[in-house]
Design a protein around this nucleic acid. Structure first.
Lengths: 218, 218
DNA sequence: CCTCAAACTGAATGATCCTTCATATCCTGA
DNA sequence: TCAGGATATGAAGGATCATTCAGTTTGAGG
Protein backbone atom coordinates (compact mmCIF):
# COMPACT_ATOMS: atom_id res chain seq x y z
CA UNK A 1 0.00 0.00 0.00
CA UNK A 2 2.86 2.36 -0.58
CA UNK A 3 2.10 3.35 -4.13
CA UNK A 4 1.15 6.93 -4.97
CA UNK A 5 -0.63 8.29 -1.89
CA UNK A 6 -2.84 11.12 -3.17
CA UNK A 7 -1.92 14.27 -1.23
CA UNK A 8 -5.42 15.52 -0.57
CA UNK A 9 -6.48 12.25 0.99
CA UNK A 10 -3.65 11.81 3.43
CA UNK A 11 -4.34 11.85 7.17
CA UNK A 12 -3.47 15.08 8.94
CA UNK A 13 -1.41 13.61 11.71
CA UNK A 14 -0.54 10.34 13.29
CA UNK A 15 -1.32 9.59 16.93
CA UNK A 16 1.57 10.13 19.34
CA UNK A 17 -0.08 9.30 22.59
CA UNK A 18 -1.90 6.14 23.52
CA UNK A 19 -5.31 7.76 23.82
CA UNK A 20 -5.01 9.08 20.30
CA UNK A 21 -4.59 5.57 18.95
CA UNK A 22 -7.66 4.49 20.85
CA UNK A 23 -9.56 7.42 19.41
CA UNK A 24 -8.52 6.58 15.87
CA UNK A 25 -9.60 2.98 16.24
CA UNK A 26 -12.89 4.11 17.66
CA UNK A 27 -13.43 6.41 14.71
CA UNK A 28 -12.76 3.64 12.21
CA UNK A 29 -15.02 1.22 13.97
CA UNK A 30 -17.73 3.85 14.29
CA UNK A 31 -17.46 4.57 10.59
CA UNK A 32 -18.06 0.93 9.81
CA UNK A 33 -21.00 0.74 12.17
CA UNK A 34 -22.66 3.83 10.76
CA UNK A 35 -22.00 2.56 7.27
CA UNK A 36 -23.72 -0.69 8.14
CA UNK A 37 -26.69 0.77 9.96
CA UNK A 38 -27.32 3.97 8.00
CA UNK A 39 -25.69 3.39 4.64
CA UNK A 40 -23.12 5.57 2.91
CA UNK A 41 -25.56 8.29 2.04
CA UNK A 42 -26.58 8.99 5.61
CA UNK A 43 -23.13 8.75 7.02
CA UNK A 44 -22.37 12.19 8.41
CA UNK A 45 -19.34 13.36 10.28
CA UNK A 46 -21.50 14.15 13.28
CA UNK A 47 -23.02 10.70 13.36
CA UNK A 48 -19.65 9.01 13.15
CA UNK A 49 -18.22 11.19 15.88
CA UNK A 50 -21.22 10.56 18.06
CA UNK A 51 -21.00 6.81 17.64
CA UNK A 52 -17.28 6.90 18.29
CA UNK A 53 -17.82 8.89 21.46
CA UNK A 54 -15.71 11.82 20.36
CA UNK A 55 -16.48 15.26 19.04
CA UNK A 56 -16.51 16.21 15.39
CA UNK A 57 -13.49 18.38 15.84
CA UNK A 58 -11.43 15.40 16.89
CA UNK A 59 -12.09 13.67 13.61
CA UNK A 60 -10.83 16.70 11.76
CA UNK A 61 -7.55 16.50 13.59
CA UNK A 62 -6.84 13.26 11.81
CA UNK A 63 -8.61 13.63 8.50
CA UNK A 64 -8.82 16.77 6.39
CA UNK A 65 -12.30 15.79 5.24
CA UNK A 66 -14.83 13.01 5.07
CA UNK A 67 -13.41 11.45 1.96
CA UNK A 68 -10.04 11.03 3.58
CA UNK A 69 -11.75 9.02 6.27
CA UNK A 70 -13.32 6.70 3.72
CA UNK A 71 -10.04 6.41 1.97
CA UNK A 72 -8.15 5.48 5.09
CA UNK A 73 -10.80 2.97 6.05
CA UNK A 74 -10.57 1.21 2.71
CA UNK A 75 -6.82 1.33 2.88
CA UNK A 76 -6.83 -0.44 6.21
CA UNK A 77 -9.23 -3.02 4.97
CA UNK A 78 -7.49 -3.78 1.70
CA UNK A 79 -4.15 -3.87 3.39
CA UNK A 80 -5.30 -6.55 5.79
CA UNK A 81 -7.00 -8.48 3.01
CA UNK A 82 -3.91 -8.44 0.82
CA UNK A 83 -1.92 -9.67 3.79
CA UNK A 84 -4.19 -12.64 4.27
CA UNK A 85 -4.02 -13.60 0.61
CA UNK A 86 -0.25 -13.29 0.61
CA UNK A 87 0.01 -15.57 3.60
CA UNK A 88 -2.26 -18.13 2.01
CA UNK A 89 -0.15 -18.08 -1.13
CA UNK A 90 3.03 -18.55 0.81
CA UNK A 91 1.54 -21.52 2.62
CA UNK A 92 0.83 -23.32 -0.66
CA UNK A 93 4.25 -22.92 -2.16
CA UNK A 94 5.14 -26.01 -4.17
CA UNK A 95 1.71 -27.58 -3.78
CA UNK A 96 -0.39 -28.94 -6.65
CA UNK A 97 -2.60 -26.41 -8.41
CA UNK A 98 -5.79 -27.94 -7.07
CA UNK A 99 -4.79 -27.14 -3.55
CA UNK A 100 -3.74 -23.65 -4.57
CA UNK A 101 -7.12 -22.85 -6.04
CA UNK A 102 -8.80 -24.28 -3.00
CA UNK A 103 -6.72 -22.10 -0.72
CA UNK A 104 -7.21 -18.97 -2.78
CA UNK A 105 -10.97 -19.19 -2.98
CA UNK A 106 -11.40 -20.32 0.59
CA UNK A 107 -9.20 -17.59 2.00
CA UNK A 108 -10.82 -14.82 0.06
CA UNK A 109 -14.33 -16.04 0.75
CA UNK A 110 -13.62 -16.52 4.44
CA UNK A 111 -12.24 -13.00 4.70
CA UNK A 112 -15.30 -11.55 3.03
CA UNK A 113 -17.83 -13.56 5.00
CA UNK A 114 -16.26 -13.04 8.40
CA UNK A 115 -18.38 -9.93 8.85
CA UNK A 116 -20.91 -10.02 6.08
CA UNK A 117 -22.59 -6.69 6.78
CA UNK A 118 -19.24 -4.98 6.90
CA UNK A 119 -18.24 -6.40 3.55
CA UNK A 120 -21.50 -5.22 2.14
CA UNK A 121 -21.11 -1.76 3.54
CA UNK A 122 -17.59 -1.48 2.19
CA UNK A 123 -18.57 -2.64 -1.26
CA UNK A 124 -21.17 0.08 -1.28
CA UNK A 125 -18.98 2.77 0.23
CA UNK A 126 -16.45 2.36 -2.53
CA UNK A 127 -18.49 4.58 -4.83
CA UNK A 128 -17.99 7.49 -2.45
CA UNK A 129 -14.32 7.85 -3.15
CA UNK A 130 -11.82 7.58 -5.91
CA UNK A 131 -10.12 4.47 -4.74
CA UNK A 132 -8.34 3.43 -7.90
CA UNK A 133 -4.93 3.82 -6.30
CA UNK A 134 -6.00 1.49 -3.50
CA UNK A 135 -7.39 -1.11 -5.86
CA UNK A 136 -4.25 -0.84 -7.92
CA UNK A 137 -1.95 -1.36 -4.97
CA UNK A 138 -4.05 -4.24 -3.70
CA UNK A 139 -4.07 -5.87 -7.11
CA UNK A 140 -0.32 -5.62 -7.45
CA UNK A 141 0.35 -7.28 -4.14
CA UNK A 142 -2.09 -10.08 -4.75
CA UNK A 143 -0.96 -10.55 -8.34
CA UNK A 144 2.62 -10.90 -7.24
CA UNK A 145 1.85 -13.34 -4.47
CA UNK A 146 -0.38 -15.46 -6.66
CA UNK A 147 2.04 -15.51 -9.55
CA UNK A 148 4.85 -16.64 -7.29
CA UNK A 149 2.66 -19.39 -5.92
CA UNK A 150 1.61 -20.80 -9.28
CA UNK A 151 5.12 -20.58 -10.62
CA UNK A 152 6.05 -23.06 -7.94
CA UNK A 153 3.25 -25.52 -8.69
CA UNK A 154 4.30 -29.14 -8.47
CA UNK A 155 2.04 -30.41 -11.20
CA UNK A 156 1.73 -27.76 -13.88
CA UNK A 157 3.43 -24.99 -15.83
CA UNK A 158 1.84 -22.20 -17.80
CA UNK A 159 2.85 -20.59 -21.04
CA UNK A 160 1.47 -17.19 -20.13
CA UNK A 161 1.30 -17.25 -16.37
CA UNK A 162 0.52 -13.59 -15.89
CA UNK A 163 -2.55 -13.78 -18.13
CA UNK A 164 -3.73 -16.87 -16.31
CA UNK A 165 -3.29 -15.27 -12.90
CA UNK A 166 -5.01 -12.09 -14.01
CA UNK A 167 -7.99 -14.04 -15.25
CA UNK A 168 -8.12 -16.24 -12.21
CA UNK A 169 -8.04 -13.40 -9.73
CA UNK A 170 -10.42 -11.20 -11.67
CA UNK A 171 -12.96 -13.96 -11.82
CA UNK A 172 -12.61 -15.03 -8.20
CA UNK A 173 -12.90 -11.48 -6.86
CA UNK A 174 -15.67 -10.66 -9.26
CA UNK A 175 -17.66 -13.76 -8.52
CA UNK A 176 -17.48 -13.15 -4.81
CA UNK A 177 -18.64 -9.62 -5.30
CA UNK A 178 -21.53 -10.70 -7.46
CA UNK A 179 -22.60 -13.26 -4.90
CA UNK A 180 -22.78 -10.47 -2.34
CA UNK A 181 -24.64 -8.20 -4.67
CA UNK A 182 -27.30 -10.79 -5.31
CA UNK A 183 -27.81 -11.36 -1.61
CA UNK A 184 -27.80 -15.10 -2.11
CA UNK A 185 -28.68 -17.18 0.94
CA UNK A 186 -25.63 -18.74 2.57
CA UNK A 187 -26.44 -22.19 1.30
CA UNK A 188 -26.51 -21.12 -2.32
CA UNK A 189 -23.53 -18.87 -1.87
CA UNK A 190 -21.50 -21.77 -0.52
CA UNK A 191 -22.63 -23.89 -3.42
CA UNK A 192 -21.42 -21.27 -5.87
CA UNK A 193 -18.08 -21.16 -4.11
CA UNK A 194 -17.71 -24.91 -4.45
CA UNK A 195 -18.54 -24.68 -8.12
CA UNK A 196 -16.14 -21.79 -8.47
CA UNK A 197 -13.30 -23.98 -7.25
CA UNK A 198 -14.27 -26.59 -9.80
CA UNK A 199 -14.38 -23.93 -12.46
CA UNK A 200 -10.96 -22.53 -11.63
CA UNK A 201 -9.40 -25.96 -11.47
CA UNK A 202 -10.88 -26.93 -14.82
CA UNK A 203 -9.55 -23.70 -16.26
CA UNK A 204 -6.04 -24.27 -15.00
CA UNK A 205 -6.04 -27.81 -16.33
CA UNK A 206 -7.09 -26.49 -19.71
CA UNK A 207 -4.57 -23.66 -19.67
CA UNK A 208 -1.50 -25.49 -18.47
CA UNK A 209 1.28 -26.54 -20.79
CA UNK A 210 0.06 -29.85 -22.14
CA UNK A 211 2.02 -33.05 -21.66
CA UNK A 212 3.96 -31.41 -18.90
CA UNK A 213 2.79 -32.44 -15.50
CA UNK A 214 5.35 -30.38 -13.70
CA UNK A 215 7.22 -27.17 -14.38
CA UNK A 216 10.81 -27.16 -15.67
CA UNK A 217 11.59 -30.62 -14.32
CA UNK A 218 9.50 -33.19 -12.54
CA UNK B 1 -38.98 -5.96 -14.64
CA UNK B 2 -42.46 -6.34 -13.23
CA UNK B 3 -41.63 -7.79 -9.87
CA UNK B 4 -42.34 -5.86 -6.68
CA UNK B 5 -42.17 -2.19 -7.65
CA UNK B 6 -41.37 -0.30 -4.43
CA UNK B 7 -44.07 2.35 -3.94
CA UNK B 8 -41.83 5.19 -2.89
CA UNK B 9 -39.67 4.85 -5.97
CA UNK B 10 -42.45 4.80 -8.54
CA UNK B 11 -42.56 7.57 -11.15
CA UNK B 12 -45.24 10.16 -10.54
CA UNK B 13 -46.82 10.04 -13.94
CA UNK B 14 -46.26 8.72 -17.39
CA UNK B 15 -45.99 11.01 -20.42
CA UNK B 16 -49.18 11.41 -22.39
CA UNK B 17 -48.07 13.90 -24.96
CA UNK B 18 -45.14 13.67 -27.35
CA UNK B 19 -43.16 16.51 -25.81
CA UNK B 20 -43.32 14.79 -22.43
CA UNK B 21 -41.67 11.72 -23.85
CA UNK B 22 -38.94 13.88 -25.30
CA UNK B 23 -38.48 15.55 -21.95
CA UNK B 24 -38.22 12.26 -20.14
CA UNK B 25 -35.61 10.96 -22.54
CA UNK B 26 -33.67 14.17 -22.17
CA UNK B 27 -33.76 13.83 -18.41
CA UNK B 28 -32.45 10.27 -18.52
CA UNK B 29 -29.70 11.14 -20.94
CA UNK B 30 -28.76 14.19 -18.91
CA UNK B 31 -28.59 12.07 -15.79
CA UNK B 32 -26.14 9.76 -17.48
CA UNK B 33 -24.03 12.62 -18.72
CA UNK B 34 -23.86 14.30 -15.35
CA UNK B 35 -23.08 10.97 -13.77
CA UNK B 36 -20.21 10.50 -16.17
CA UNK B 37 -18.78 14.00 -15.94
CA UNK B 38 -19.41 14.89 -12.30
CA UNK B 39 -19.82 11.55 -10.55
CA UNK B 40 -22.72 10.42 -8.41
CA UNK B 41 -21.79 12.61 -5.48
CA UNK B 42 -22.01 15.84 -7.41
CA UNK B 43 -25.13 14.93 -9.29
CA UNK B 44 -27.76 17.42 -8.19
CA UNK B 45 -31.28 17.83 -9.42
CA UNK B 46 -30.46 21.31 -10.65
CA UNK B 47 -27.49 20.13 -12.65
CA UNK B 48 -29.45 17.37 -14.30
CA UNK B 49 -32.29 19.71 -15.16
CA UNK B 50 -29.88 22.25 -16.56
CA UNK B 51 -28.16 19.69 -18.74
CA UNK B 52 -31.48 18.34 -19.91
CA UNK B 53 -32.62 21.81 -20.82
CA UNK B 54 -35.63 21.75 -18.52
CA UNK B 55 -36.40 23.25 -15.16
CA UNK B 56 -36.11 21.43 -11.86
CA UNK B 57 -39.83 21.51 -11.41
CA UNK B 58 -40.31 19.46 -14.53
CA UNK B 59 -38.24 16.64 -13.14
CA UNK B 60 -40.41 16.56 -10.07
CA UNK B 61 -43.45 16.03 -12.20
CA UNK B 62 -42.10 12.65 -13.17
CA UNK B 63 -40.12 11.59 -10.15
CA UNK B 64 -41.06 12.11 -6.52
CA UNK B 65 -37.39 12.53 -5.61
CA UNK B 66 -33.85 12.07 -6.78
CA UNK B 67 -33.64 8.44 -5.80
CA UNK B 68 -36.62 7.60 -7.96
CA UNK B 69 -34.73 9.03 -10.88
CA UNK B 70 -31.74 6.81 -10.20
CA UNK B 71 -34.01 3.88 -9.79
CA UNK B 72 -35.81 4.46 -13.06
CA UNK B 73 -32.53 4.92 -14.86
CA UNK B 74 -31.17 1.64 -13.62
CA UNK B 75 -34.45 -0.03 -14.42
CA UNK B 76 -34.27 1.12 -18.03
CA UNK B 77 -30.71 0.01 -18.32
CA UNK B 78 -31.15 -3.42 -16.77
CA UNK B 79 -34.31 -4.00 -18.74
CA UNK B 80 -32.51 -3.40 -22.01
CA UNK B 81 -29.56 -5.50 -20.91
CA UNK B 82 -31.77 -8.42 -19.92
CA UNK B 83 -33.47 -8.17 -23.28
CA UNK B 84 -30.18 -8.46 -25.12
CA UNK B 85 -29.13 -11.48 -23.13
CA UNK B 86 -32.48 -13.14 -23.67
CA UNK B 87 -32.22 -12.65 -27.38
CA UNK B 88 -28.71 -14.05 -27.47
CA UNK B 89 -29.90 -17.10 -25.56
CA UNK B 90 -32.77 -17.64 -27.93
CA UNK B 91 -30.43 -17.46 -30.89
CA UNK B 92 -28.28 -20.30 -29.52
CA UNK B 93 -31.10 -22.70 -28.86
CA UNK B 94 -29.96 -26.22 -29.61
CA UNK B 95 -26.35 -25.22 -30.23
CA UNK B 96 -23.33 -26.89 -28.62
CA UNK B 97 -22.32 -25.51 -25.24
CA UNK B 98 -19.13 -23.96 -26.58
CA UNK B 99 -21.09 -21.66 -28.81
CA UNK B 100 -23.44 -20.83 -25.98
CA UNK B 101 -20.67 -19.70 -23.71
CA UNK B 102 -19.16 -17.72 -26.53
CA UNK B 103 -22.45 -15.96 -27.19
CA UNK B 104 -23.13 -15.27 -23.52
CA UNK B 105 -19.78 -13.71 -22.77
CA UNK B 106 -19.59 -11.80 -26.03
CA UNK B 107 -23.08 -10.37 -25.72
CA UNK B 108 -22.64 -9.25 -22.15
CA UNK B 109 -19.21 -7.81 -22.75
CA UNK B 110 -20.32 -6.00 -25.88
CA UNK B 111 -23.25 -4.46 -24.05
CA UNK B 112 -21.02 -3.24 -21.26
CA UNK B 113 -18.31 -1.87 -23.51
CA UNK B 114 -20.57 -0.10 -25.95
CA UNK B 115 -20.38 3.01 -23.81
CA UNK B 116 -17.61 2.39 -21.35
CA UNK B 117 -17.94 5.57 -19.34
CA UNK B 118 -21.65 5.01 -18.97
CA UNK B 119 -21.14 1.51 -17.68
CA UNK B 120 -18.64 2.87 -15.22
CA UNK B 121 -20.94 5.59 -14.05
CA UNK B 122 -23.80 3.16 -13.59
CA UNK B 123 -21.69 0.71 -11.63
CA UNK B 124 -20.80 3.55 -9.31
CA UNK B 125 -24.27 5.02 -9.08
CA UNK B 126 -25.66 1.76 -7.85
CA UNK B 127 -24.55 2.53 -4.32
CA UNK B 128 -26.86 5.53 -4.25
CA UNK B 129 -30.02 3.49 -4.26
CA UNK B 130 -31.44 0.29 -2.93
CA UNK B 131 -31.59 -1.60 -6.18
CA UNK B 132 -31.98 -5.11 -4.89
CA UNK B 133 -35.39 -5.50 -6.50
CA UNK B 134 -33.93 -4.50 -9.84
CA UNK B 135 -31.01 -6.88 -9.55
CA UNK B 136 -33.40 -9.58 -8.49
CA UNK B 137 -35.70 -9.07 -11.46
CA UNK B 138 -32.78 -8.90 -13.84
CA UNK B 139 -31.27 -12.05 -12.43
CA UNK B 140 -34.52 -13.95 -12.76
CA UNK B 141 -34.96 -13.07 -16.40
CA UNK B 142 -31.40 -13.91 -17.30
CA UNK B 143 -31.41 -17.06 -15.21
CA UNK B 144 -34.51 -18.29 -16.98
CA UNK B 145 -33.22 -17.53 -20.44
CA UNK B 146 -29.85 -19.10 -19.77
CA UNK B 147 -31.32 -22.18 -18.19
CA UNK B 148 -33.61 -22.72 -21.14
CA UNK B 149 -30.70 -22.36 -23.49
CA UNK B 150 -28.44 -24.86 -21.78
CA UNK B 151 -31.28 -27.31 -21.36
CA UNK B 152 -31.40 -27.44 -25.14
CA UNK B 153 -27.68 -28.00 -25.64
CA UNK B 154 -26.88 -30.46 -28.39
CA UNK B 155 -23.78 -31.89 -26.77
CA UNK B 156 -24.26 -31.97 -23.03
CA UNK B 157 -26.65 -32.45 -20.15
CA UNK B 158 -26.25 -31.37 -16.55
CA UNK B 159 -27.25 -33.05 -13.33
CA UNK B 160 -27.89 -29.81 -11.48
CA UNK B 161 -28.48 -27.30 -14.22
CA UNK B 162 -29.68 -24.47 -12.01
CA UNK B 163 -26.53 -24.57 -9.90
CA UNK B 164 -24.39 -24.58 -13.01
CA UNK B 165 -26.23 -21.65 -14.51
CA UNK B 166 -26.07 -19.69 -11.28
CA UNK B 167 -22.34 -20.20 -11.06
CA UNK B 168 -21.78 -19.41 -14.70
CA UNK B 169 -23.73 -16.17 -14.64
CA UNK B 170 -22.37 -15.02 -11.33
CA UNK B 171 -18.83 -15.48 -12.52
CA UNK B 172 -19.36 -13.89 -15.92
CA UNK B 173 -21.10 -10.83 -14.51
CA UNK B 174 -18.65 -10.58 -11.66
CA UNK B 175 -15.59 -10.93 -13.84
CA UNK B 176 -16.81 -8.23 -16.17
CA UNK B 177 -17.43 -5.94 -13.27
CA UNK B 178 -14.00 -6.59 -11.83
CA UNK B 179 -12.38 -5.86 -15.15
CA UNK B 180 -14.08 -2.49 -15.14
CA UNK B 181 -13.13 -1.81 -11.58
CA UNK B 182 -9.48 -2.42 -12.29
CA UNK B 183 -9.53 -0.08 -15.26
CA UNK B 184 -7.62 -2.57 -17.35
CA UNK B 185 -6.47 -1.36 -20.76
CA UNK B 186 -8.65 -2.71 -23.57
CA UNK B 187 -6.02 -5.14 -24.75
CA UNK B 188 -5.74 -6.84 -21.40
CA UNK B 189 -9.47 -6.69 -20.87
CA UNK B 190 -10.06 -8.48 -24.14
CA UNK B 191 -7.49 -11.06 -23.19
CA UNK B 192 -9.29 -11.72 -19.93
CA UNK B 193 -12.55 -12.12 -21.81
CA UNK B 194 -11.00 -14.71 -24.10
CA UNK B 195 -9.65 -16.58 -21.10
CA UNK B 196 -13.02 -16.29 -19.43
CA UNK B 197 -14.63 -18.14 -22.31
CA UNK B 198 -12.03 -20.84 -21.99
CA UNK B 199 -12.70 -20.98 -18.28
CA UNK B 200 -16.44 -21.29 -18.67
CA UNK B 201 -16.13 -23.94 -21.34
CA UNK B 202 -13.74 -25.98 -19.24
CA UNK B 203 -16.14 -25.69 -16.34
CA UNK B 204 -19.11 -26.91 -18.34
CA UNK B 205 -17.12 -29.83 -19.70
CA UNK B 206 -16.19 -30.77 -16.16
CA UNK B 207 -19.71 -30.32 -14.85
CA UNK B 208 -21.70 -32.10 -17.53
CA UNK B 209 -23.09 -35.58 -17.09
CA UNK B 210 -20.17 -37.80 -18.03
CA UNK B 211 -20.42 -40.30 -20.85
CA UNK B 212 -23.40 -38.47 -22.20
CA UNK B 213 -22.58 -36.27 -25.11
CA UNK B 214 -26.13 -35.12 -25.60
CA UNK B 215 -29.19 -34.64 -23.42
CA UNK B 216 -32.02 -37.20 -23.35
CA UNK B 217 -31.21 -38.63 -26.77
CA UNK B 218 -28.59 -37.92 -29.37
C1' DC C 1 4.76 19.85 40.81
C1' DC C 2 4.89 22.53 36.61
C1' DT C 3 4.94 23.39 31.78
C1' DC C 4 3.84 22.78 27.18
C1' DA C 5 2.41 20.28 23.47
C1' DA C 6 -0.93 16.97 22.22
C1' DA C 7 -5.59 15.92 22.21
C1' DC C 8 -10.22 17.15 22.50
C1' DT C 9 -14.53 20.05 22.46
C1' DG C 10 -18.85 21.70 20.15
C1' DA C 11 -21.34 25.90 18.97
C1' DA C 12 -21.24 28.72 14.98
C1' DT C 13 -20.55 29.42 10.02
C1' DG C 14 -21.50 29.07 5.46
C1' DA C 15 -22.55 26.45 1.62
C1' DT C 16 -25.19 23.16 -0.82
C1' DC C 17 -29.17 21.31 -2.42
C1' DC C 18 -33.74 18.94 -2.36
C1' DT C 19 -38.37 19.96 -2.90
C1' DT C 20 -42.55 22.83 -3.37
C1' DC C 21 -46.04 25.65 -5.45
C1' DA C 22 -48.13 29.55 -7.55
C1' DT C 23 -48.04 30.77 -12.13
C1' DA C 24 -47.53 30.46 -17.11
C1' DT C 25 -47.61 28.05 -21.49
C1' DC C 26 -48.89 24.43 -24.59
C1' DC C 27 -51.70 20.85 -26.79
C1' DT C 28 -55.75 18.28 -27.98
C1' DG C 29 -60.34 17.10 -28.67
C1' DA C 30 -64.81 18.90 -29.36
C1' DT D 1 -62.01 28.40 -31.92
C1' DC D 2 -61.89 27.41 -27.15
C1' DA D 3 -61.88 24.94 -22.68
C1' DG D 4 -59.44 22.15 -19.75
C1' DG D 5 -55.98 19.10 -18.86
C1' DA D 6 -51.07 18.30 -19.55
C1' DT D 7 -46.69 20.19 -19.18
C1' DA D 8 -43.23 23.49 -17.87
C1' DT D 9 -41.15 27.27 -14.95
C1' DG D 10 -37.86 28.81 -11.26
C1' DA D 11 -37.63 31.66 -7.18
C1' DA D 12 -37.91 30.70 -2.37
C1' DG D 13 -38.24 27.76 1.76
C1' DG D 14 -36.21 24.87 4.76
C1' DA D 15 -33.20 21.24 6.11
C1' DT D 16 -28.90 19.06 6.27
C1' DC D 17 -24.08 18.95 6.76
C1' DA D 18 -19.05 19.62 6.25
C1' DT D 19 -15.72 22.25 8.28
C1' DT D 20 -13.55 25.71 11.43
C1' DC D 21 -11.52 27.65 15.54
C1' DA D 22 -11.18 29.71 20.00
C1' DG D 23 -10.90 27.70 24.06
C1' DT D 24 -10.48 23.60 27.46
C1' DT D 25 -8.62 19.32 29.20
C1' DT D 26 -5.14 15.73 29.45
C1' DG D 27 -0.70 13.60 29.75
C1' DA D 28 4.45 13.25 29.55
C1' DG D 29 8.84 14.85 30.50
C1' DG D 30 11.64 17.57 33.38
Amino acid sequence: MTLSPPPHLTPRKKPRQARATVTLDAIFEATIQVLVSDGPRRLTTTRVAERAGVSVGTMYQYFPHKQALFYALNERYLDALAGEVEEACRAQHGAPIGRMVEALVTTYWAAKTERVEVTHALYRSVAEIDNEPLIEAFAQRVDAATTAMFASASDAAFADLSAVVLTLLTSIFGTVRSVFERHLPIAEADAVMRQLKLMCTAYLEAAKVQGKDAPVAA
